[in-house]
């Protein structure tokens, strides 16, 4: 497998219209096929970073996704095809009233045939073991189930890069395990933010620690997730499995 650059960020900053500086001169390079966990305290800029990867927000500085500059409006459509984003709150992400339609929304926008769309929806729900939700209403299911459907909606698009914002939140142990298993066998580039450090330990090959919009540490899970002092300094704590 050729390892090309999936994400290239040089001096990337982002400020919200209200004035809050969410990211400050961030330099980052993520290779194709890498599974990167982004950690940090609340308000560190983790979710903001993910929205930049999908082109939802335009940053200052230079950001490229698979060699395509986010700042170039001509690239936005292609970037959204390449990079799928799962929102932190599934209530924000699900907008169709039926599960099938919501998961099928992305593939339909890609202009696929209806038979192909149906196959993609089936596959995505199968990965998360949620086939029973196929005909359900997106309004009358639990928050955890909504989370699964939100993830399935992005998986069905088969993007090259998947950005997951707190994917394990509200999932039961069974579905959390399913998600971990899928992430471990997936060949896509995955960037995931989470406070569930055990989940990141099980899935990621690299950890980036953000605080106040800046990279504090970047390295293998072994060096960051076992560093108690570093984690405590950034309002985090060791994963549960190391807290004996």
């Amino acid at each position: 497998m050729a390892y090309n650059v999936a994400i290239e960020a040089e001096a990337v900053s982002f400020r919200y219209p209200a004035g809050t500086l969410a990211l400050e001169r961030l330099d980052l390079r993520i290779m194709e096929g890498e599974k990167v966990g982004i950690i940090g305290p609340n308000g560190a800029g983790k979710s903001t970073l993910l929205t930049l990867l999908n082109g939802l927000r335009l940053p200052e500085g230079h950001l490229e996704i698979f060699g395509k500059a986010v700042s170039d409006k001509k690239n936005i459509k292609e970037i959204r095809r390449l990079a799928g984003l799962v929102f932190q709150n599934p209530d924000d992400q699900l907008f169709m009233t039926e599960v099938f339609d919501d998961v099928a929304f992305g593939p339909r926008n890609q202009g696929l045939e209806e038979s192909e769309v149906e196959q993609r929806v089936n596959e995505a729900l199968q990965i998360l073991n949620s086939r029973e939700l196929y005909n359900s209403s997106t309004i009358h299911i639990s928050f955890g189930q909504k989370k699964l459907i939100a993830i399935a909606g992005v998986l069905a698009m088969k993007p090259e890069l998947i950005a997951l914002d707190e994917p394990s939140g509200n999932l039961d142990a069974f579905h959390r395990r399913k998600l971990i298993d899928w992430m471990n066998i997936s060949r896509q580039t995955i960037v995931v933010t989470s406070h569930d450090l055990d989940f990141l330990w099980d899935t990621c090959t690299r950890i980036i620690l953000l605080n106040k919009g800046m990279v504090v540490a970047d390295g293998q899970p072994d060096t960051i997730l076992k560093n108690k002092t570093l984690l405590l300094q950034n309002q985090l704590e060791l994963p549960l499995r190391f807290q004996v």
Binding site: T51, F95, F105, G106
Partner: peptide
């Protein structure tokens, strides 16, 4: 706020103004 995020969710999944009609 939620209505705004809904439109962001649509845009993030490739919506460009043409609603897929099936």
């Amino acid at each position: 706020e939620r209505s705004g995020r809904s439109s962001e969710a649509m845009v993030s999944r490739g919506f460009t103004g043409r609603f897929p009609i099936v």
